[in-house]
Design a protein around this nucleic acid. Sequence first.
DNA 1: CCTCCGTGATGAAACGTTTCACGTATTTCA
DNA 2: TGAAATACGTGAAACGTTTCATCACGGAGG
Lengths: 338, 338
Amino acid sequence: MADVAREAGVALGTVSRVVNGQPVGKEYRKKVEDAIARLGYRYNSSGRALRTDRTNSVALIIPNTINPYFASLVHHINIELEKRGRRGLLWLTEYNQKRENEVISMALQNRVDGIIALTYNPDLVIPDSIPFVTIDRFFSVSVPCVASDNFGGGWLAANRLAELGCKKLAFMRIGSTLTNEPSKRKEGFVSACVKLGLPFEIMTLEDGAPMREFEDFLSAHQHGGRLDFDGLFFGTDSLAWRMIQVLRRMGVRVPEDVQVIGFDGIRMFGDQSLIVSTIVQPVQEIAEACVSTLLSRHLSGVPSLICLPVHYEYGGTTLDRPDEGSPDREGDPSDSAC
Amino acid sequence: MADVAREAGVALGTVSRVVNGQPVGKEYRKKVEDAIARLGYRYNSSGRALRTDRTNSVALIIPNTINPYFASLVHHINIELEKRGRRGLLWLTEYNQKRENEVISMALQNRVDGIIALTYNPDLVIPDSIPFVTIDRFFSVSVPCVASDNFGGGWLAANRLAELGCKKLAFMRIGSTLTNEPSKRKEGFVSACVKLGLPFEIMTLEDGAPMREFEDFLSAHQHGGRLDFDGLFFGTDSLAWRMIQVLRRMGVRVPEDVQVIGFDGIRMFGDQSLIVSTIVQPVQEIAEACVSTLLSRHLSGVPSLICLPVHYEYGGTTLDRPDEGSPDREGDPSDSAC
DNA sequence: CCTCCGTGATGAAACGTTTCACGTATTTCA
DNA sequence: TGAAATACGTGAAACGTTTCATCACGGAGG
């Protein structure tokens, strides 16, 4: 920058103002711009960051980018940040709790302007020196959490299955031992079943338990070649997808013998079709909420739990037809936590 | 850092050496560490970057993170960088050529230590001031390009279909108008068909053309309820997936009526099953090659096109059985460009 | 006892910005 | 016409590091 100033025959401050688009006299601006072009000058963000103590970057802490739901979250959050002149700094954790804390520490060293984290870690140390937003896990009233309406989603799934003619339901999930918002899916489902007077079963597999147990559960409920329930709700699309393979291997037809609804709204390639009928999380809105909450953190009155509406969408594993208008929400879980 | 020095009663340089794990007298180290703990000091990477002109970060320029293949690339490259003490800075471009160049410019401003880019942009301005590695697109001998053996993959697909009893093949792809490595898939496929003496058709859809044209192509080849080819190779798993839905709607059974092979090796959730029988790209090896090539850039003798082997894997859309050992490569395309 | 050497801490300078108190030139108004 | 007000460029200081020439100390050798 000093070189540019010398070349242009102006002061350092003038170059700075040109670079930052601040008002500068016309001929000065021209001289500086010419000098910049002549010298091929590129400004150095480290210098700026050092001086201003702002990096215009936000840490994004996510388990991985393999799960399509996370991948799409990363995508939309990045885009949303870009819109507001920020950059996302991605850190992958694979749910490793030690690493999650290390990563926060690194982010602080990098002087990010804020942190968005998706983690269930009960021992997460949340710095108070910096705006912090969590996804899918509520920590405390002073840390805003963005999540979709998981309770409502569970409720919606049960109602939809009932409406599609199911007589007995089951819910299967991998139950994280750690508290988090997604576990409300079960509560919503149960409430709806109770209200509808439908019989149901819950099967929770603890983290790390072998998948076999799910298969055993299904076999145990297969009597004379038929499952004794005809509606199946899964905690995630991922699980639904895997179990559908198992069901098919067992000779159970989906959706003819059992209708299946998942949760997340995973689409194979962007806006393409779903892989299962599912409760769709509004990823884009979630991303938007994370970013806008994070960046308007100084405004008081930010709610501490931001809950976004989900909707049902046909994806081939239920007996409704795609063109059938599917009303977004039937019934209303009065005791929804959101 | 000055505060720490004062608190510990030592010089600035000593604190710096402690922070960087350089040799320091035992009692000094202790004093400094105590002071750091007492003050809750966190070092500032902007300061370090400014002084050393190294950021330990690498720009990763990718169209998006929605396509599972890209998502997994991002994942593995990040992990590989982490292993070597670097950080990845993700930039999404959505194939926007203007943005691709802007993004490179931003990366340079951020003083990244290197750039890894996946783009087909013919007008990409590649800075020579910094290590640069491309994926799937060869630019010049001075810019290493990492790609999988696309030619060999096409060859392999044709051979496999022939081996599975197909009598007439077709290859369908979305042909980017821009040159890139993946377009060699077609060449490998064609070579193999010629060598095998199998009749085949090629259907290339230009970028942005409506998907309808693919459907029309298929309809045109459907005579009396049957397709007039029985083996179908697609340029990507993404396309294969979409077209399988179309085929099923047309009443064509996969794999009974037509066997389908895709390309990429997209897995629904990490290490889980494939979505179609496919030619699998070695994502992890690709990531590793990108990073190690980038970081050992000063060593001379880096090949300018690094070509990694692909393999075939059963994924449900062909008539082989998963347990059948599938020899990795049948025949050998003598004129493979790799 | 003196000198020399080696070890290891010291602290000033420099990295590339932004900011702000100041200076200069121009305009305005009585 | 002259003083005051306005407009705008100047350049030194500061941000938090790392580096390196320098210095202090203690032990070894003569």
